[in-house]
């Protein structure tokens, strides 16, 4: 029998894990147990980035993490990053460039961009930021506008 891993903190709120099944993915906990539907299920196999959330500020794919296996660190979803200055800058850049078409991939793109900007710093450079975002797919292929938003945010590069 598995020891109780302790509560997981999601968007600042403790989530008791004792009653969560061992095989539940973080994505399903967020969407179906906590009602946080901003995190999207795309491929459910780690290929599309739609389910990206932050774990202690680092991007992770919530479709490939077992909720009960995660360390007791804060999880931040698209719903939880609104007051963050980096997130506000990312939201403004995506809005200014209308960097979305159907919008399904947008939460993943925004969360991934926020996480990468914090991890790599504001001088990351356009080329590096683009490369690091390669794990996020837009099935509408609306990349041109997303790319313009990224260029607004990455200061250090060309």
């Amino acid at each position: 029998m598995s020891a109780d891993p302790g509560p997981l903190e999601v968007n600042g709120r403790p989530v008791e894990r004792a009653s969560i099944p061992d095989d539940e993915r973080l994505l399903d906990t967020l969407r179906w147990r906590l009602g946080l539907k901003g995190t999207k299920e795309g491929c459910r196999s780690g290929d599309c980035g739609a389910c990206t959330v932050l774990l202690a500020g680092e991007t992770v794919l919530s479709c490939l993490a077992l909720t009960r296996d995660l360390p007791a660190l804060p999880v931040t979803t698209i719903e939880g990053i609104e007051e963050d200055p980096v997130a506000i800058a990312v939201r403004e850049a995506f809005t200014a460039e209308a960097a979305l078409q159907c919008g399904y991939c947008t939460p993943g793109f925004v969360v991934a961009t926020v996480g990468l900007l914090k991890e790599l710093g504001p001088d990351v450079g356009v080329d590096r930021l683009r490369e690091e975002l390669a794990g996020n797919l837009c099935r509408c292929t609306g990349y041109a506008a997303i790319d313009r938003a990224i260029r607004r945010l990455a200061r250090g590069g060309p």
């Binding site: 780690g46 980035g49 990206t52 774990l55 680092e58 991007t59 992770v60 794919l61 490939l64 993490a65 991934a112 996480g115 990468l116 690091e132 390669a134 794990g135 996020n136």
Partner: peptide
């Protein structure tokens, strides 16, 4: 290997 988010895990 995979994406940045995948490599965090």
């Amino acid at each position: 290997v995979g994406s940045a988010a995948l490599r965090h895990r």
